[in-house]
């Protein structure tokens, strides 16, 4: 049995930390990018890095859009746990209130758009896997970038080049809006909806961990090169650093299709994971 108190504490800590300081690999890439940049790109990256220092020092979120919380739970089938979703939700609400993070969620998407005041509900996905571990992957997804995300239903014969073109098309349309340098999650295969989920799951992987399959690792690096060749640059003010990383996840698909989903994330690449095991 994994205690819900432990789940609460771990999720609370993870959610509080993710809005105040970036994962070390993201922070490292932003620092390196500043050293290589010039002109307005260097000014923008300088402000981003200074902003990160201020946020850490003051204990306030680096971006006011502390996002809608996205949760992917991978639950081992031998794990016993009660009230998992409620526990995670309570930890999210408490972390947002006590961290002075912005509540950015409205109750109904069309009628009235009244802010729920708790940043709930979060978006949940559950996966049941063999074993005794509970893995919780969390994103705090800002919507300046989320609004730039897209799904394409390509023809099955279009192949790899069309995937690269689609990812580039997303950024050509987005330009400076999603706060580049961005991190892109790309989901390839499955169905319309599953490709989108894969594109989010791709964002849960550390930037320094390329795809385990060499073919897709190469695709990730080719995509990064293609996006950076667009010249959009930090803040859209030009330059060679449009993306910090491109992460790919793939899945089997239908003979008639090639779904490709692109989730655009800003440089504020907030991700956290909580791993717990049955004793």
């Amino acid at each position: 049995m994994i205690s819900s108190e432990v789940v609460y504490q771990e999720v609370y800590k993870a959610v509080q930390a993710m809005n105040v300081s970036l994962p070390v690999d993201v922070a490292g890439r932003l620092k390196a990018a500043q050293q290589q940049a010039e002109g307005p790109a260097q000014a923008v990256l300088g402000q981003i890095n200074e902003n990160l220092l201020i946020a850490a020092r003051e204990g306030i979120p680096f971006c006011q859009d502390t996002g809608m919380v996205w949760v992917h739970v991978s639950l081992g089938e031998e794990v016993q746990i009660r009230g998992l979703k409620e526990t995670i939700s309570r930890a999210v609400a408490d972390a947002y209130r006590e961290g002075y993070f912005r509540s950015s969620v409205v109750e109904d998407p069309l009628r009235e758009r009244k802010n729920t005041g708790t940043n709930l509900p979060a978006v949940f996905h559950f996966d049941i896997v063999p074993g005794r571990t509970l893995e919780i992957y969390i994103l705090a997804k800002g919507f300046g970038s989320e609004n730039c995300s897209r799904v394409f239903m390509l023809k099955p014969t279009q192949g790899r080049e069309a995937v690269i073109d689609s990812v580039c098309a997303v950024m050509k349309e987005a330009r400076g809006v999603p706060c580049p340098p961005v991190v892109l999650g790309v989901g390839i295969g499955g169905t319309f909806d599953y490709a989108a989920l894969l594109s989010k799951r791709a964002l849960t992987r550390a930037l320094d961990h390329p795809h385990p399959c060499p073919y897709y690792a190469q695709l990730e690096s080719d995509l990064l090169e293609a996006v950076n060749a667009l010249g959009i640059g930090p803040g859209g003010l030009g330059g060679g650093c449009t993306a910090l990383a491109v992460k790919v996840e793939s899945f089997s698909t239908h003979i008639a299709g090639l779904p490709v989903a692109v989730t655009v994330n800003c440089w504020a690449d907030r991700r956290a994971k909580v791993l717990l095991s049955e004793i």
């Binding site: 902003n51 946020a55 003051e58 204990g59 306030i60 979120p61 680096f62 971006c63 006011q64 859009d65 502390t66 002075y100 993070f101 912005r102 950015s104 300046g144 609004n147 809006v177």
Partner: peptide, 21 residues
């Protein structure tokens, strides 16, 4: 801008720009 809530002792919470478009 749509600022984050103001923590005690501060003038305002986190307050960066949102998408102008």
């Amino acid at each position: 801008v749509g600022p984050a809530p103001t923590p005690p002792g501060k003038v305002i919470g986190s307050a960066g720009p949102t998408t102008a478009g």
